[in-house]
Amino acid sequence: MRTAVKGIALNTFRESARNKVFYLLVFFGVLFALSSKLVSFLTLGDAMKVLKDTGLAAIHFFSALIAVFTGVNLVYKEIEKKTVLNILSKPVSRDQFIFGKFLGLALTMLVALAVMAGIFFVFVALNGGGFDPAIALYFLMLLLELLIIVAISLLFSSFTTPILSFIFTLSLYLIGHVMWTYNEFKVVLKAPLWRGFARFLYYLLPNLAKFNIKNEVVLGTPPGAWTVLLSILYALAYILALLCLTILIFRRREFS
């Protein structure tokens, strides 16, 4: 890999790592995950299951927030504050810039998630639970989802303002989690045109629900290797498509 791409990626990571908001979100993620202990006191049933269920949900929510927040901000800031001029006036192509940005964001998400996951594992152990490989699998799938979110926010922030990118990305995130409604929707829609359109959207929009395996993990019925492999391939393909689109847009941009 070009040193330039590595440099951009590491600098992107460093920018997040020196941002207070980033720490705040990680902190809240951990805080809410730990407060699942409280919830487990207050609810009936298997305390450990409740602990895992609530804790993982908290981590999911806050890591997704970090993904949207960092993805939306970083590229826009670079253009708005004109630091991008210092990069693109050097022998760095637009493609390499976007690729480096994505890798840096991916690294940021990896580290943020690793911190939260690590603390969560210790927390579970302190509460008498053992190491559950299914939870590790949950985090892997969550990481894939975060990478997709980051790629989406990168796409939007390459041509619009942070506020709009934030709204768009968040909308796609929410839609991505209700994709299961498609099957029910399909039944309701009679006209073939509408069905075709719904089908088109189904394949176009990110199916993030695929990556949320919390219920299966908590209930002790994690998905099989084949399903996991398909999910990984789906994520990679989706990210690649998003990056290509972002690069196409970015290649035509002017910086004044």
Partner: peptide, 20 residues
């Protein structure tokens, strides 16, 4: 304008990396 969270040395190291 340069990244205000970097030091001068870090910024120049970054700039150098862009030239590989």
């Amino acid at each position: 304008y340069f990244y205000d969270y970097l030091t001068a040395r870090e910024l120049l190291t970054f700039a150098a990396s862009l030239f590989d």
